[in-house]
Design a protein around this nucleic acid. Structure first.
Lengths: 344, 344
DNA sequence: TTGAAAGCGCTAACAT
DNA sequence: ATGTTAGCGCTTTCAA
């Protein structure tokens, strides 16, 4: 039951050499149809499963993809917390890899050398980087011979790696246009951080373009930086927004968590959403639809993003075309209860 | 740079045999201190990293732990969605494994044979099952020779596997006692499902015991089944609770998602939380503290749960004591805004 | 068409 | 204390 049936056993059972079995299993057309059938039967009979460790050693290919997360405080937790985002992405990745006979290794990494280790130690066939890593890591990775796919990273490295991003500019545009269409013209944009975050910057560009297209002059005093994307910071921003006189009637926040925090602060100050203020988020977290009012947001299909990333890396591994893939996925505006026609 | 430095290269560089290098690397005390230093230096000089595939083949130990998720609709997504729970657990697992030199393989599985495959194919050293799988899977796994740790599963298999659970009865007790202490006596319990879910049943037992301890007679009409733990179902339950006359002034829901759904429904019907109804959840999801009002709940330390699970499997692998581990972790009541003293 | 045998890189029993 | 060597299970060249 717990036996270790090897290729030898199968060979013996079929009255052939191990080599013949290997040929059949690898689809190498070197064996007569008759013996092939005999071998296949032996495989079935013995419930033979090739030992992938041995295969890996021999072929120098492991069929393992490593998914790398940046480490914060030496653990993945900050990455994962607050966000079903990463988990849904993993689901997408796992799905595609499983369907294609690859296995999924997960690890947090901090230094480039750690990645090297993965390649050397585990012989992984490809690396998937989720999120933003220290710059030097990318620098060193350039030299790597294994396929790499970056998800959600700086364009800066476009020239060196495959990568998958969302169309953040489009998303920013959708959110802003939605508010404009509802009659809002003084629209605040709350970024996570503007400098140093190409993602937020893209969303900002979309925001600006939508305003201009509607003949509204963007106003610097309507743009804010929350400094991180936590609920707490959104809450603080919300309080701050109300603490000064302003003309804004709508806010577009660069993440749902931020938007939810803002919303809570405004409500606490006695403001009604969407009657007094309309709010749009970005991401479409599960809980955004549970909030009161439910949050209008720019949705990313994260499962899909994971699938696409996995598909890309498999392609990069299996086709040895050197062409890098740059895939930009679309966003979608989800209209819920937190936005409404401007009063008056 | 991209070289494949083998143990042979190191041996040559140090002027010794491959065996000597292997001994040093594996801490086998068979080498003079002097040559040991020489070997260590060679390892450094050449930046040698052992090829784990080869090690694995040779030692018949891979230092890989497979984490299994049940597949729903052929993907992990339903598992992960709605719930930072699983991701936080993975963080905990990853942390401990990484610190102990193990790698983390993730896969969705449906059938027992798939697990067997993992063991045979990848030579994994241990299996971690997260969540609830088809029964036949457990049945077949009994025969397995590799260490297995179950997280959050039926006690039914206690005799066969290691497992980690929360003290659900304690949790149910804490939640109920908290409400009783606030002056509530007619307390509704909303289970995910009572039959077939040992977890919810345990929480129910805790609920019942707390009532009895306070001299309150449990009332069947105060116990409800939502049938799943979704927000939507909680919402539906909330509406239903109000649709009939009743005396309840507080609710204890078996998950935060459910509690949040109930809360939204009650609020929509014009009820104020906690003035009209107190509500307690279970889990302490991140978003529970963001809700308005923020949710009082029974907290599970999920990162810790993951760490404990990982520690347990490593122990099971490395010590060959046959004693199974059954670890029950404590819960903690988090008092927030959704509960208050009963009026009047 | 088939098979013998030499690796893949490392470990461990056995000799020296 | 150190080295030799036969595996681990599979692939693949080369010869038959």
């Amino acid at each position: 039951m717990n036996g270790k049936i090897t290729i030898r056993d199968v060979a013996k059972h079929a009255g052939v050499s191990p080599a013949a079995v290997s040929y059949v299993l690898n689809g190498i057309n070197k064996v007569s149809d008759e013996t092939k059938q005999r071998i296949l039967k032996a495989v079935k009979d013995l419930e033979y499963e090739p030992n992938l460790t041995a295969v890996s050693l021999s072929k120098r290919k492991s069929n393992v993809i490593a998914v790398m997360f940046p480490l914060v405080n030496d653990s993945l937790v900050t990455m994962f917390k607050d966000n079903h985002y990463q988990s849904e992405m993993i689901s997408g990745i796992e799905y595609v890899l499983r369907k294609n006979g690859y296995d999924l290794l997960i690890s947090g990494v901090q230094s480039p050398s750690e990645c090297m280790k993965w390649i050397r130690k585990r012989n992984v066939d490809g690396l998937l980087f989720l999120g933003v890593f220290p710059n030097r890591l990318y620098e060193e990775m350039k030299a790597l011979s294994k396929p790499i796919v970056l998800v959600d990273t700086y364009d800066k490295y476009e020239r060196y790696f495959n990568h998958i991003t969302m169309n953040d500019e489009e998303g920013g545009h959708q959110a802003t246009k939605h508010l404009i269409d509802l009659g809002h013209s003084a629209i605040g944009f709350i970024a996570h951080r503007m400098t140093n975050s190409p993602i937020d910057y893209k969303r900002f560009i979309g925001y600006e373009k939508a305003l201009k297209a509607a003949g509204i002059k963007p106003c610097k005093s309507h743009v804010f930086e929350a400094l991180d994307s936590s609920f707490e910071n959104g809450y603080r921003m919300g309080k701050e927004l109300l603490s000064r006189p302003h003309s804004m009637s709508a806010f577009f926040a660069s993440s749902d968590t931020l938007a939810l925090g803002i919303m809570k602060a405004l409500q606490e100050e006695g403001k009604r959403i969407p009657e007094d203020y309309s709010i749009v988020g970005f991401d479409d977290l599960t809980f955004s639809s549970y909030a009161t009012p439910s949050l209008t947001t720019v949705r990313q299909d994260v499962f899909n993003k994971g699938s696409v990333a996995a598909t890309a890396i498999i392609q990069a591994i299996e086709n040895d075309t050197t062409a890098l893939q740059h895939i930009r996925l679309s966003t979608e505006l989800i209209h819920r209860e937190s936005t409404a026609k401007k009063k008056g």
